[in-house]
């Protein structure tokens, strides 16, 4: 414990001195972190919703994200979209790619639930967890075989950006690229839309009801199977948005990206409090920020160690996550 406090003090000191020297550097890390965090957050929602409603961790969700990424890659290549096309063409084609990718990925998400999880509903808790791992492997291998194991890349489509802060002395500037603006805007819009859907519509109400008491919800005329299917569909659609954004941001995908992104997003969901939607978003942003700040100030190699250590520390002091509700058992 002493060593830990010592380490924290040193790192805080380090961070401060750096921050004083170049504020622009700090802002840059903030921008990068929020972008990455948005992507994690979008994936994390899928984990948290599924956990909330049927109490299982859908380990195949990260791979659904990967499938979404590949679908958008195929669409972009098939449509022959390049940065040479006009701005409006790019916007409309990307919107089209986004919608088609959401629909197709949602179909994948639905199919996975229908084939691998629904037949096991009502069996012991570990069974769907193990099939989820199985589905994850199936999806990875399917994409590996059908698309090849090599990296696939596209040329950057959304280019340009803005200097938001320029340091006159060092010449270092914090740069906000258009793709980062796009990612954050899409995430914010989706979050608002999604929150509205969950809180205000009958669909969202039935979903929250199923989260609390599946049996009672069905006795009130809610078709629970359909509600669960919809949960998977919505989670997959959001993951596919994350997939499209990931592809546009990094320009390169392979069949294995779903694993690490999935683990990170799952961590984000747990950090924010699994089962809580705002928690998933907050957790995603935090994991993104921790990773980028750690990479920016300390070492890139240990960024995952940092993210998972923070998770461990938070869970020690807040076992139900940052925004999760503790489970109170009535006696």
């Amino acid at each position: 414990m002493g060593a830990f406090i010592c380490l924290t003090a040193i790192s805080a000191n380090y961070l401060l001195s750096f921050g004083e020297r170049i504020l622009e550097y700090f802002v840059q890390q903030l921008i990068n972190g929020l972008t990455l965090g948005s992507i994690y957050g979008l994936i994390a929602i899928g984990y948290t919703m599924v956990y909330g409603i049927i109490g299982m961790i859908n380990f195949a969700h990260g791979d659904i994200f990967m499938v979404g990424s590949f679908i958008s890659l195929i669409l972009i290549v098939a449509l022959g979209l390049t940065a040479a096309a006009g701005m409006w063409t790019i916007i409309f084609v990307l919107l089209f790619v986004l919608v088609v990718s959401m629909v197709l990925t949602a179909t994948w998400g639905w199919a996975v639930e229908r084939i691998a999880y629904r037949p096991l509903r009502g069996s012991f808790r570990l069974a769907p967890l193990i099939t989820a791992i199985g589905m994850s492997i199936v999806l990875q291998n399917f994409v590996q075989i059908s698309q090849g194991a090599r990296n696939k890349s596209i040329q950057p489509l959304v280019t340009g950006g803005h200097d938001v802060m320029v340091n006159a002395e060092t010449g270092f500037s914090a740069y906000l690229s258009n793709i980062q603006i796009l990612i954050m805007t899409v995430t914010v819009v989706l979050m608002f839309g999604f929150t509205f859907l969950i809180n205000k519509t009958s669909l969202g109400r039935s979903q929250r009801a199923c989260e609390q008491d599946t049996k009672m919800a069905s006795l009130l005329g809610v078709n629970v199977d359909r509600t669960i299917s919809l949960t998977f569909i919505m989670g997959a659609a959001l993951a596919s948005v994350a997939g499209v954004m990931f592809l546009l941001y990094y320009g390169v995908v392979d069949f294995y990206i779903g694993f690490l992104a999935g683990v990170k997003a799952f961590t984000a969901a747990v950090l924010g409090g699994i089962g809580s939607l705002p928690g998933a978003m907050l957790g995603g942003l935090l994991i993104g920020l921790i990773e980028t700040f750690w990479s920016g100030y300390f070492s890139v190699e240990y960024k995952d160690v940092a993210a998972f250590s923070i998770l461990a520390i938070v869970l020690i002091f807040m076992p139900s996550g940052l925004l999760g509700k503790p489970e109170v058992e009535k006696v």
Binding site: S202, R208, A209, D213, A217, G221
Partner: peptide, 26 residues
Amino acid sequence: LFGGMTVLENLMVAQHAPLMTASSFT
């Protein structure tokens, strides 16, 4: 009851089926 939901929401969940029909599935 759905303890985390409001009293009114509890009553609205019970009307899920007609509401879904009325809203053409949202």
